[in-house]
Nucleic acid binder design. Structure first.
Lengths: 142, 142
DNA sequence: ATATATTAAGATAAAGTAGTCTTTAATCTT
DNA sequence: AAGATTAAAGACTACTTTATCTTAATATAT
């Protein structure tokens, strides 16, 4: 099951903020311009992250949003859990319900192994690490 | 990107029909009962398979639907292509757009390998083979 | 012919997601 | 105090998917 745009936008904005943590508050307008995301829609997404105390916001001139804690203490999992309801990596690759039975599936073992790796990455990779890879990693809007 | 319910229903119904090819026409009502799928919705799904000449239908008493050709000549791919617009297995596992860059992704190689296996299975597994495994394979509605 | 069975087709509804627009609240600058 | 800046909040639109309901078309059986 793939991620909603809300979640993708939230992840991308979070990584951007992680790369600019020393800048203090960054306006949502600036983020939306840089990532080419609808300003109003992004505002709603970031509101949710703010309400979950992942971001901190400030109104008025020089206001904006910033990470509420150090980027090295925020995992991808936290962002996803906030923006995606009941996110789980499916038992079967791609969510195909054809091969849910273990013996019948020609690639069940491969998938289980990979699924484990992905889960570990989601649980442990931090925004800091992602921001560090910033030039290598290209987080697109699908 | 996971499959739509339309596609899942279509796949399940097709496998059922493959297991009963000698029975001739099977009513949609019977299929919907057996698979616990909304009759009217299933009707619409099977209509599309009929229009694509994957199924053959017959109205009136003793009517119903059946596979238009031998189950061993119908691959999963055909069903999916009919019911799912532009089905492709994503470059990144789960469609997460975070790790689309090859070097940056911690499990890109594993996924590519598995993706290849899945694509091959989708392209080559036939309804006949699936029906044969019928008791082992459990195709659920997610 | 008439009644029945069955798929086909169309209209509508309900829910979720994505996106837009407007107003309000908070904060700063002057 | 007034005006400008910025996030927060709410209303609304558009689209897609899933689902339901009703009617039409076709075939059979008696």
């Amino acid at each position: 099951m793939s991620l909603s745009y809300s979640c993708i936008y939230g992840l991308r904005a979070s990584v951007l903020l992680a790369g600019r943590q020393e800048d203090g508050f960054v306006t949502i307008r600036e983020i939306s311009n840089e990532l080419e995301i609808s300003f109003h829609f992004l505002t709603k997404v970031l509101q949710r992250l703010t309400n979950s105390d992942i971001l901190e916001s400030y109104k008025g001139p020089n206001g904006g949003v910033k990470l509420a804690k150090d980027a090295s203490n925020i995992t991808i999992r936290e962002i996803i859990d906030c923006l995606e309801e009941n996110f789980t990596i499916p038992e079967c690759a791609l969510g195909l319900p054809i091969f849910q039975n273990h013996e019948a599936c020609p690639f069940h073992e491969d998938w289980r192994e990979l699924k484990g790796k992905i889960e570990k990455a989601v649980d442990t990779l931090t925004l800091h690490e992602l921001a560090e890879r910033d030039k290598k990693i290209f987080i697109s809007n699908r």
